[in-house]
Each structure stands twice: as structure tokens, then as C-alpha cells.
Design a binder for these strands. Sequence first.
DNA 1: GCTATTCGTAAACGCGAAAAACAAATTAGT
DNA 2: ACTAATTTGTTTTTCGCGTTTACGAATAGC
Lengths: 413, 413
Amino acid sequence: MADQDGPAPAAKPRRPAEYRPGGRTAPASQRGMRQQNLSLVLRTVADQGPLSRARVAAHTGLTRAAVSSLVEELRGADLLVESGPEPGGRVGRPGSALAVSDRGAAGLGLEVGVEHLGACVVDLRGEARVWSRTAAANRGRAAAQVLADLAAVADEVVRQASGQGLRPVAAVLAVPGLVGSAPGTVEHAPNLGWRHEAVVPLWPGTLPVEVENEANLGALAELWSRSVGPDFVHVSAEAGIGAALVIDGRLFRGARGFAGELGHVPVRPDGPPCACGARGCLETYAGEAAVLRRAGLEGVAMDPVGALGERARAGDARVVAALERAATAMGTALAGAVNLVDPAAVVLGGAYAELGEWLMPGIRRELERRVTVRPWQADALRVSAHGRRGPLLGAGLTTVRRILDNPGRFTLP
Amino acid sequence: MADQDGPAPAAKPRRPAEYRPGGRTAPASQRGMRQQNLSLVLRTVADQGPLSRARVAAHTGLTRAAVSSLVEELRGADLLVESGPEPGGRVGRPGSALAVSDRGAAGLGLEVGVEHLGACVVDLRGEARVWSRTAAANRGRAAAQVLADLAAVADEVVRQASGQGLRPVAAVLAVPGLVGSAPGTVEHAPNLGWRHEAVVPLWPGTLPVEVENEANLGALAELWSRSVGPDFVHVSAEAGIGAALVIDGRLFRGARGFAGELGHVPVRPDGPPCACGARGCLETYAGEAAVLRRAGLEGVAMDPVGALGERARAGDARVVAALERAATAMGTALAGAVNLVDPAAVVLGGAYAELGEWLMPGIRRELERRVTVRPWQADALRVSAHGRRGPLLGAGLTTVRRILDNPGRFTLP
DNA sequence: GCTATTCGTAAACGCGAAAAACAAATTAGT
DNA sequence: ACTAATTTGTTTTTCGCGTTTACGAATAGC
């Protein structure tokens, strides 16, 4: 028949042969089918901009009739809106443009930093509509206290959002520390002084809340805001040096959730002793403490990374040399990571993103030197598009992606 | 109702929160639902041993009626067989045990090594029913010649299999080299002297054939024969030192298919120069050539790894020292990999598996020293269950898993 | 105006799993 | 030995959902 004039359904460059042994355990049901197609339609509209029903049908492979039915359900839940007839330069009846709603369900992002609290509300289109960041001295304070303060900030943000017709349905909290496999608990956040804190029960708000490591969320923000493709390594130095691995559009957590400990990859087997007990870990060269000591800025307490940037900009040779040394070590460790994982890009995020000007050349040099048996372009090393805002944005976006991935939860009930 | 007395549907220990942004592109259809459930039933029987229809229903969550219908279709395709009434110690009508067929569709595994050719036929139960390994000097021979020889071996194996009622439906060829993203081409197999060889068109047999790196297949053999869990790193030294990463039951190939180049992970940034142009790569310490040189066995052409094992067993101090040095370097590089990827186990496979007795202590020591910020048990380092037989077994199993994952291809047509 | 084309919807259809009902085969209890 | 209870496997009915087919609506080109 070929009644569609558009380009063929895009036949994504599928991976050669996908070995999937285990597979799902849940049976495929008609209900599951419907939910999957609801999500497919919603995500298609979210990804490909405003689209008519017919174009959605062409993109997804569903029939126009099926799309009509699915769209009706999504409109009823205020997830999709009809923005009127498309401007038609073409022959035939013009379609009616569909777009993801900028009202209704939304995501609440929360962040606890060492020196600040943050909250934001992200709408279904992925835009941060309300944003708040307030200074706070959280180091060493009890978790319950910190969360109470954060709840006040969150309340204000939610109030402003509801003025714009936005209704957050869930919250995600970014923390600078290791989140355990037990859901909602922070195993170890050295910079806050938290250990084995069951955060979720302490949260005074009413919205369901989830906890996640801030470096992971920063990486997800990069992914979901399309500033980078679906395969990359996101390096972030906050509490230690962490690397979030995003592979085929999925955050990679490892067998026990400890993946990405780039900070303890050996750089020189007999290098300086590390707090972890080993020698020559990357952190002993490029960790915040090591760089500050080398740069002669040990005393700085407030925003030490910002101070490094200032001094480097001012041309302080000692600081520049310290950053160069850190970059060389990071490049060596990253070369190992790239050889192992073969990402399409390496993104420098978190606080170190601001030091990219001084770190990138050294990292790039080591990567070019040590990644030779595969195609590797120099521009595959980039600086984060969001910098320090990444984790909070990622926290808000997490809930948004959940809605897009499973809209069925919001349509019928 | 709770009419099932068995344990609840097992609610697998699902990962905490799976972030899946992109997701499938294909729409969910009723046909797809059927195929998915056909696979679910077949895999359930394959994994959980002989099972009655009612038990399959309990395991999968499908109704007994649905299972009956699905089983009927699978029996018609000779994928499932009914092995008679179950011995009943329990009250009620005894069920009729279902098992995966040991006849009919099967997988043909093929292998081209530097010094041998191999072929095997694996039945749907995962058992190698026919096995053939013949010596052959393939180094430097033209690919077409080698494949012609291999086809003769394969013909004989297929003939024997058909005597047992087995009918291979597809072949997978294991090669010691890098398989490109273009399907069916070997980009570089240094030990064979192949470069940019489009192998598939050269194959004289009639069965559809696919090409895959032998280290990857060795890892998949471990996975599918359940000798290790679904998350591990499989180290294998054949052509260079490769690490196959298996994560959540899936082989991890990287953005461009080059993942797992453990051999060029830097061990000492300023170590000996490597053929790749960098310095201090793992291969300069633990590659076959480096170890042989250090051990004073440079001249050995036939099965040099076997020779290393012999001398080590005989107590040759120089050989033992060379292996110890290699082990230390491997342990250092693997520590970095474990810190990054957080696998549940590290498996030493391929030819080096036979040297495990001398390599494991050094590797284990470095791992224990350098993997400290997460739980890591010494027994997470193991030797392959299959050794050199792994790749060929994995090749045969690949087709078997394909059938189990998509039986719909074999039922209707 | 008229025709061709495209869009959105509606009705009939087909497929597949769920639900309900039923026959078959066994154990437990008397 | 006989009945009740229980479990299994099949049959029948029902329901949900995407597809097919058909039709009205809206536009461009003539």
C-alpha cells in the first residue's frame, strides 16, 4: 500500500545481534500492550516535536485508528494537548498538531549539597519551570534537620509551580554520596557526615520521594536533555571522583550498584597511599583534596573548586600545574575506562566542569595517546551542558521520564 | 483466590529503579504478545526443569488455559515434548511433565583457531551432542581455504547430528579477532593474518552463518551454562587480552562494538612501549608475547600456553616468575575494571584458564588490595568452567538461545 | 466548481488472553 | 469400596485491543 509519504519508519541502526538470555519474567498481556503503546505514542510526540496523529502513526507503525484511541486516553489524562490545525503547505486535510502538555503532572527535583539546598519543578516537556537554590551549611548537621529545611524550600517551589498549573507527582532527591541498594537509604555521604541514613522515612513532605546519587542524576540530565548521545561516560568530582556509565540510554549501576568508582582506579600501582588502603588511586592525584594541597589552597573551605578556577584564571602557575597533573592522571584512568567500555563520548560534569579549560587539554592528550585500537575523535571529550545544575535537573527529569515511560499509571485512575 | 499452593510467582529481586529513556521503537501488537509468551513458556520449561502446565502457569503468571494453548503450539513445532504423567506424591490429578525437546532444531557451532578447526551441534537443552576438533595450520592461509576445510568438518558433524534426529537451523562461527560492526566481517585477526575479511559470503555451506569474537562467545558459554551469575567480567587471552563484560545477562559490546579491550588498559603510565603506540598497557606485561619472552620460551610456536603450563608444573622458576609478574599486572588492570563496572564475579577463561594455578594468587592479591570501597569476596575470582572449549560451545549455544528467545519463528512456518 | 489527497473517526473483524465452567485423575477419609 | 476434596487440563464464553475497511471532513490544484 505504502500510503505514507514520509521517510520509512527510520529502521534504527540496531545493534548487530542482541544476546538476551534471561529476558522478562512478566507475561505479556493485553493490558501491558496498551500501556506500552500509550508510552510509545507519548514518547514519540515528546521526542519528535509537535506531530499530527497520522505522523505519529507513521513513526510508530501503529494504525491511525489505534493512535486516535491512544491519544484520546492521553488527552483525557492531560498528558497530551491538541494545539490546533497544522499549517498546511501540503495537499489534503491538515492534521491537528499534538504536543506534550506543559501543565498537569510534573516532577519535583530536590538536592542536598554540602553548602546549599535546591529544588525545582520540571514539566512534561523537560523544562525546569521553577528553580530554587539557597545557601545552607549542611556539613555535619543531622539528616532530619537538613530535610526539614529542604521541605520548606520544596513547599515554596511547589506553591509557585501550582500557580502555573503544574502538579508534581513524585520527588527525587540528589545527594552527594553512595546510595545503597536498600531503597531510600544513603550508605555513606562523607561530605555531609551521613552514614546509613534511611532518608525516605525522614522526609516530612507528602509526595513520594526517592534518593539517588547526584553524579548519576547529572549524567541522566545530560542524557535526557539530549546534549549527548545514548552512550557516554560522565565524570564528576564531588564526593570522590565518580564516573556514571550510560550505555544504550540506560544508567549502568553494576551488579551491586557500585559501578563507576573511577576514583579508585589505579593510575600508578605504587603511587601515593590512598584513604581506601590501596596505592596510586586516581583520587590521590585528581581528588579535590589532592589538587588543593598541590595548588597550595588547602585552607579554603567555601567553594574550593570555584577558588581553583579563579586562581587559574588569574594565571597562578602553581594552580595551573596542579590541574595539569590532575588532568594527566584523569586522562590515564579514563583511557582505561574507554578501552573497557567503548563509550561514544566522555563528558566532564559536576564541579570540575568549570575547570574544563585547564583540565581538558591534559585529559585529551592522554586519551589520544592511549586509546588507539579503535576510532576515537578528540571532540568525543566534552564539558557538561549543565554543570552544577545537572544533578537537580536530573532529579526533576527522573520523574518526568517515569511518566513518559509509563503513562498508564496516570490515565485510568 | 490463591488457588496455587506453590511459592508466590517469585517476584525476582528487581533492580531498584530502572531508568529507560529510549525504549523500543516497535509497537506492541497481539502477534508480538503471542510470540513473547511462547518464548516465556519455553524458557520457563528450559530453566526450571520438567514442569507441568499448571506449574508453568504459576511460574509465569499466565492462566492455565493460555499455557495449554501455547504449549500446544510449541509441541507442534517439536520444541517441547510431553514426557508423561508426573509421579504424584500430592493430592489431585497429576500433571503431565513438559520438557524441552532433545531432537529437532539445534545450533551449529563453528570455530577457526590458529592451530585447529572445530565444530559442534548443541541441542535445545544446551547439551553438546556432537563435538569435533581437528588440528590445522591456519596461520596465514587464505580465509576461503580455511572456510572450505571447516565446511568439510561441519558437514561431517551435521551428518552425525542428523543421525540423532537433530537439525541445525543456523551456524555461528567463533574467530580469534575483532568482528566489525558490518555483519559477518572480521576486521582484524592478527594471529590468522585476516584483515577486513567478509567471511559470510565465503562460507560454502547452506546454513545461515554469523561471525563472532571467540572471547565473547566463551563468556556467553559461561553465562548460558549457568556456571556463573548474570553479571561478570570474563578475561580471555588469545589474540591480545580481552575482557567480555556480561551485565544483567547481556553481553556488553560498547557504543561501537569495541568494548572489553582490557589489553590496552594502562598499568604503568610510563611502562614499556606497546604495539598500539602507548606505554605500559597490560599487554606489555601479560600478553602472550611478553610472558613468553620473560619466561625464555620465545621460540615455541605450537601451543605456547600449553608449554608455559608444563614448565610451570615442572617448577621452572623463570616461568613461574614471569607468570607472577603477568598476574600482578592483570590484577591491577582488573581492579580498575572492577571498580568501574562492579561485576559480581571475574572469570578467567580462554587459554589462560589453564594457567589459573599460577595466575590466580597474584590477581587475587591485587584485587583484594585495590577493590576496597565495595563488598568483594575472594571467591568472586574464578576459572572458567569450560576453558578452551568455551568459544565453540558458546557458538552452538548462541543459536539455541535465539530459538528459545523467539520460538515464533519456528512454529507457524 | 470538481477531483485528488490526506486526516480523523467509526463499525466490523480477528486474535489472544482471562474468566468461568467442566471433565479427568488422583488422595484422604470413612 | 465408596464418597468428598483437590488438582490438572481442556472447553466455552467474555472482554480488550489493534487492524481492516469504510466514510465524512478539510485542504490544494485544476
